[in-house]
Design a protein around this nucleic acid. Structure first.
Length: 340
RNA sequence: GGAGGGGUGGGUGAGUGGUUAAAGCCACCAGACUGUAAAUCUGGCGUCCGGAAGGGCUUCGCAGGUUCGAAUCCUGCCCCCUCCA
């Protein structure tokens, strides 16, 4: 199936993280072409078709510069979540490594990134729409405390981790408990994470970033964001629901139904995107030693990047990639190799 | 020139004698997060001291006044808006 001398013992994965609009896409493209990489999207909204402008999805032209994955895989009324991301991304990483190419995970969805990296073991309880609707109705009747109390008696450990007002989380915890009453939901990290990875974080002065966001939205409007939302509506998707609850889609939807003016919609979208940035920095902390932060705009077409004093991406990759030099236990990886 | 309306914290906007450092919303800052995560939720947000409880100081156009007490009442001044000339 595979020759032992070609077995990949350790292969690196590159991750590019950071807030929206810092320039992750263009850095990813440079690195992909420099290091023979394939890009895996880790953005919860770019997975959707018909949502191109508003999600700042890489353009067709950009997508031609390197293989891209997890883009345009679903329609906006289909559900995408952490579990799906993990299973797809994990498979893709293996495949790409199998081709002896470099997987480059790029995205601003912190939960996805860390789950992948740390090997989170999410409870295998799929969403249950009926259950959720029922609990939501209960909460409306009796208030959030009522639901929270149910969780307190069902799974006190989990309850202690949640704010009683965060209905969505409380209901999910109950849902999990409901489905697997025998074993309470507990955080686990038993799956394999990414052992040999380099996380590059892109950051920028906050004020400057907000300015970039505002400018980029103005540009999106010129490029036809309003039309994009209209088209989505025409296809039967509802702004404000599902992935269309994100910045731009929700606000423009309110504009199209006459609730707010266009100017208002644009301004609100800018502000909402600023908020998004703040939340993203909660996942990607500047003090996190795992992330190699690069400040400011990274020039296009870099041939190599200095990650920290004396270390470059090139060094990192050659240090970690040990093709066929060690003959240890590589059974798991060999399986993946077989798929190529 | 005349008749009205109005000036409140970064913005908007409540508040018409004490329980008001002044609601709510926005902006901004910080945080939580293990199957919706660009979502959901929480805290902070005049200023100084304090770990905190709490305390001090300065705020509601400006200047005076009434009152035990004023963003709130009175007087004058400045500015803005609408309408009539």
């Amino acid at each position: 199936m595979n020759s032992p001398t070609l077995a990949v013992i350790t292969t690196p994965v590159l991750l590019i993280v950071g807030p929206t609009a810092v320039g992750k896409t263009s850095l990813a493209l440079s690195l992909a072409s420099r290091f023979d990489g394939e890009i895996i999207n880790a953005d919860s909204r770019q997975v959707y078709r018909h949502m191109d402008i508003g999600t700042a999805k890489p353009s067709p032209h950009e997508q031609q510069q390197a293989p891209h994955h997890l883009l345009d895989i679903l329609d906006p009324d289909q559900n995408f979540d952490l579990a799906k991301f993990l299973s797809l991304a994990r498979d893709l990483i293996s495949e790409i490594q199998g081709r002896e190419r470099l997987p480059i995970v790029v995205g601003g969805t912190g939960q996805y990134i860390w789950a992948l990296l740390e090997g989170w073991n999410v409870p295998e309880v799929p969403p249950d729409a009926e259950f959720r609707a029922a609990k939501l109705a209960e909460a409306e009747q009796h208030g959030p405390e009522f639901i929270y109390q149910q969780l307190q008696s069902a799974d006190p450990t989990r309850a202690a981790q949640l704010d009683f007002r965060n209905l969505r989380r409380v209901i999910r915890a109950l849902e999990v408990h409901h489905a697997q009453a025998s074993q309470p939901q507990t955080a686990g990290q038993t799956s394999e994470g990414l052992a040999h990875s380099l996380i590059i974080g892109l950051t920028m002065d906050r004020t400057q970033l907000y300015q970039r966001i505002d400018d980029r939205l103005d540009q999106m409007m010129i490029e036809g964001l309003e039309e994009e939302v209209r088209a989505l509506t025409a296809l039967g998707y509802v702004p404000g629901e599902g992935p269309l609850a994100g910045p731009g889609y929700r606000e423009l939807g309110e504009y199209l139904t006459g609730i707010i003016s266009l100017d208002e919609a644009v301004q609100r979208t800018k502000f909402q995107t600023h908020r998004l940035v703040r939340r993203q920095y909660n996942w990607f902390k500047l003090v996190d030693p795992r992330i190699k932060w690069l400040a400011g705009a990274v020039p296009d077409g870099v041939s190599d990047l200095e990650i920290e004093a004396g270390q470059t991406v090139q060094n990192f990759l050659s240090d970690r990639a040990c093709y066929g030099t060690i003959s240890g236990d590589s059974s798991q990886i060999s399986d993946d190799m077989g798929t190529r």
